[in-house]
Amino acid sequence: MTRPKGRKTLTAITVSAFVVASAVSAGDTEISHPELVINDETKMIVQAPAPDHLKDAIDTIYSGWVFRSKETQALQMDDFDNPGMIFVEQAMETWDTPEGSEGKSCADCHGDVETAMKGVRAVYPKWNETAGKVMTLAAQINDCRVNRMGAEKWKITGGDMAAMEALISLQSRGMPVNVAIDGPAKETWELGKKLYYQRIGQLDLACAACHEKNYDHMIRADHLSQGQINGFPTYRLKNAKLNTVQGRFKGCIKNVRGVPYKPGSPEFDALELYVASRGNGLSVEGPSVRN
């Protein structure tokens, strides 16, 4: 049987021709705008050499921001335009509000969020010695709520969680993602890697099929990114709310006609560590803006 014709390698040309051809496109464009400076002062690393563990697969890692349209990109360049910032303000109130049987707030244990949470987002998910496992930021937040405040857990993919993650991420904005993948985290990282390359759902596609093999291609109206999570939580224009990492994983698996793992499950936590590690070197951007 004959082999398929080589797919066009000049993707950028194909994509821009495509955008012109369909007048009302989703506004997606080719990788075209590699500079992200927020509020005219904080310069983001949106493109970096791939971390060593990825070098066999790809050379350069990109933030999802570079794949978005100029209009969407612009919304993230000024905090007054970034709709995610409203949720940061909400979470600032939550930070100071006592809750649960202990009558404590986050601030009672941690003090000022700006100093206490600086650099935290950049290194999560992270091995927790006491728990004896890798914990995502969401798991850590829920651990504080249950064990220190005597309060109810938040839903891992819910609005309260997304808002608090946005507040915490903001304190690391611009710092490079730097999650540890060796030592006690190694086993979890290996599981995450396996899941990333494992086909799932009736469409039988792995994360890698879209985000490693085919980033910078169009899948219907979507310009495929590398599926990085340095920008999470992300405010999506599509659903007008802040979206969590694991909420996004769920969505992608649903779209390939699969049954997602449960948010907060060992599988999703491992996948979160692994995907985070593929972005080691990109700036923490949360809360970012996506379509």
């Binding site: 398929p4 014709k5 066009k8 993707t11 495509f18 085919n214 169009m218 219907r220």
Partner: peptide, 9 residues
């Protein structure tokens, strides 16, 4: 509208 380019034309 919106034809992709993951596979060949």
């Amino acid at each position: 509208p919106f034809q992709g380019n993951v596979g060949p034309v």
